[in-house]
């Protein structure tokens, strides 16, 4: 059992929790994730590790309440415990001094980006960051991101804060000479970023999250096409070369269970 020792609301449907898992904390590196299961009849679902505290032995998880499982997690209170938590899983992000880098984070995954940023900063990189969200109210952790970035741009889908949409990225790519780009966030956003950086031949690391079950290479649900080969995101990723990813296939596969998930959600809270 893994106790929730702290909880905050970051935006409408985005929550941050700190969970006690000392053994996992010892091994955690940026870019890895955990798979959790909340109750005896629950499903296994992955959440990226957004931070870890070795002194308290806690992991920070930031998640959006989008369906039944994440909403159940959202209802849990400090002092309650998560039934199962397996990790750290996946390969850590490759942290080194790339030189001048651009990091593009979107939505709830900005939490996970923050952990990467701190490590990349410590490795000596000059960092320009773009933080995006649906609208002003969904932007999270902006101050923290600014602290570790040399320069930060904000963008929203509706223009309620910062730039409108992601088109301005091409100007930034034109004006700067980046050695590497990292992107983490909604798959459609990662796709656009990868397409744009491909035009400028800038190596780009994406962080994929296909549907997963076990997270250890046993089920093949998480398979993605990278170049011409099939890879399992949980054991070969989740970081991949963005210019090699078949994003359309990934986006299509991620929707497979939508009809079922809707049933679960309607039965859960009538939404």
């Amino acid at each position: 059992m893994y106790e929730i020792v702290h909880k905050e609301t970051l935006s409408h449907n985005v929550k941050l929790i700190e969970v006690s898992a000392p053994a996992v904390v010892k091994k955690t590196k940026p870019g890895q994730f955990v798979i959790i299961r909340i109750h005896e009849k629950g499903e296994r679902f992955p959440i990226t590790i957004a931070d870890s505290n070795p002194v308290k032995g806690t992991l920070t998880l930031i998640y959006a309440e989008v369906g039944k499982s994440s909403s159940l997690l959202g209802k849990m209170k400090v002092g309650e415990s998560i039934l199962n938590l397996a990790g750290p899983l996946g390969n850590p992000t490759k942290i080194k001094n790339y030189g001048k880098i651009l990091c593009v984070g979107g939505g709830v995954m900005v939490g996970a980006l923050l952990l990467q940023l701190r490590a990349l900063k410590n490795a000596g990189n000059e960092i320009i960051t773009i933080v995006g969200a649906r609208n002003k109210d969904h932007l999270i952790l902006v101050d923290e991101i600014k602290k570790v970035s040399n320069k930060t741009y904000l963008a929203t889908d509706d223009g309620s804060e910062g730039y409108l949409g992601i088109d301005f990225l091409s100007d930034i790519l034109k004006e700067n000479k980046f050695d590497h780009v990292f992107t983490i966030g909604p798959t459609s956003m990662q796709k656009i970023v990868s397409e744009m950086t491909n035009n400028y031949h800038i190596p780009t690391t994406v962080n994929l999250f296909p549907i997963m079950v076990d997270g250890t290479g046993m089920c093949g649900a998480c398979r993605v096409t990278i170049g011409n080969t099939t890879r399992f995101a949980c054991v070969h990723g989740p970081d991949f070369d963005g210019h090699q990813v078949d994003f359309d296939e990934l986006i299509s596969r991620m929707r497979f269970y939508n009809p079922n998930e809707k049933i679960a959600m309607v039965l859960y809270d009538g939404r």
């Binding site: 009849k41 629950g42 499903e43 039944k68 079922n260 049933i263």
Partner: peptide, 15 residues
């Protein structure tokens, strides 16, 4: 393992 044959009593779906 996840008892999807009892969905939606169990949370894991199968199609």
């Amino acid at each position: 393992l996840m008892k999807a044959y009892k969905f939606p009593e169990y949370d894991t779906p199968i199609r």
